[in-house]
C-alpha cells in the first residue's frame, strides 16, 4: 500500500493490491481484468442470447476480491476516508461480478434445456461450449427439476400417449434479429447486414465497420465479432 499513501488520489484497483501485482509474472493487470469483466457484463446485458462464458475473468476477479477484502480488513480498524472509498470501490466490483453471473443464470433458467442441447452440438463441432462446467451442471439439474415437477403434477396422471414433453421445444429461442448498439473495437471487414432497399430474404449487403464507429445493427450481423472480441455491445 506504499504507493497509495504517496498518492491519495489513485483509488483504482492497482492501489489496493499492488503488492500482489508486482510478483505476478502474468502481464494482465487488475485494471485489465476489471475492464474485461465490464465488457463481458455489458455484452451479456445487451445481447439477446447467452454469450460464451468468461469464467476465466470471473475467477481472477473473485480471487482479487478476496485479496482486496483481506487488505481492507487489515486497515479496517481506522475508519479513514480512504478506507471507505476503497470499500466502495470493492462493493462496485462485487456488484459487477454478481450482476454478470445473475444475468447469465437468468438466461440459462429461461431456456436451460435448449442451451444444453446447443452446447452439446457445439462440443460435437469442436467448439467451446457457451456455458462453464459449473453453469452446465446448474442447467442440467434445473431442467431435471422442472421435468420432475411437471411429471408429478400433470403428466403422470395423463394417458400414456399424452405424457411426452420436450422441454427444449418449449424453451424460448433468442431473437437474433433484434437490433443492438455495437461499437467496433477493431476495424471489422465483411459485416453482412440486411439490405434496406429490399425486404426479401437473402438480400444482404457487405459493409466495413471502421474502428471506434458505433452502429445500430441486427445482432445476427455482429454476433461472430462479439464472440471474437472485435466488437462490443453498448
Amino acid at each position: 500500500m506504499a504507493s497509495t499513501s504517496e498518492d491519495p488520489l489513485s483509488l483504482g484497483l492497482d492501489s489496493l493490491i499492488d503488492g500482489e501485482a508486482d510478483d505476478d509474472v502474468d502481464a494482465v493487470t487488475p485494471a485489465d481484468v476489471l475492464q474485461q469483466l465490464t465488457e463481458a457484463w455489458q455484452n451479456e446485458g445487451a445481447a439477446p442470447e447467452l454469450l460464451p462464458h468468461r469464467f476465466d475473468v470471473v475467477d481472477s476477479v473473485l480471487s482479487q476480491i478476496e485479496g482486496m477484502d483481506e487488505n481492507l480488513r487489515m486497515y479496517g480498524r481506522n475508519k479513514s476516508l480512504k478506507h471507505d472509498i476503497h470499500k466502495m470501490e470493492l462493493d462496485r466490483i462485487i456488484y459487477l461480478n454478481n450482476s454478470y453471473l445473475r444475468r447469465r443464470l437468468d438466461k440459462i433458467e429461461n431456456s436451460a434445456a435448449l442451451l444444453l442441447e446447443q452446447d452439446e452440438r457445439r462440443r460435437r463441432d469442436g467448439l467451446e461450449p457457451k456455458m462453464s462446467s459449473n453453469e452446465q451442471r446448474y442447467a442440467e439439474k434445473y431442467t431435471q427439476l422442472q421435468e420432475d415437477s411437471f411429471k408429478r403434477c400433470v403428466l403422470d396422471q395423463l394417458p400414456v400417449s399424452l405424457q411426452k414433453l420436450e422441454l427444449a421445444r418449449l424453451a424460448p429461442i433468442a431473437n437474433t434479429d433484434e437490433l443492438v448498439f455495437a461499437e467496433a473495437l477493431e476495424t471489422c471487414h465483411g459485416v453482412s447486414v440486411p439490405d434496406p432497399r429490399d425486404d426479401g430474404p437473402g438480400f444482404e449487403q457487405i459493409v466495413v465497420l471502421e474502428k471506434e464507429s458505433r452502429t445500430l445493427i441486427p445482432y445476427k450481423s455482429v454476433q461472430s465479432f462479439v464472440y471474437s472480441g472485435d466488437m462490443r455491445l453498448l
Binding site: 475467477d59 480471487s63 462485487i94 451442471r137
Partner: peptide, 24 residues
C-alpha cells in the same frame, strides 16, 4: 447453493448472488 459454492478457483469465495442487486 451448489452453483455459488462452485465459483472461484478455491471454491470458497463465499459469493452470495442475492446481495448487491442494485449498483451500490
Amino acid at each position: 447453493a451448489d452453483f455459488q459454492s462452485g465459483l472461484g478457483e478455491s471454491g470458497s469465495c463465499g459469493v452470495d448472488l442475492t446481495v448487491n442487486m442494485e449498483p451500490p
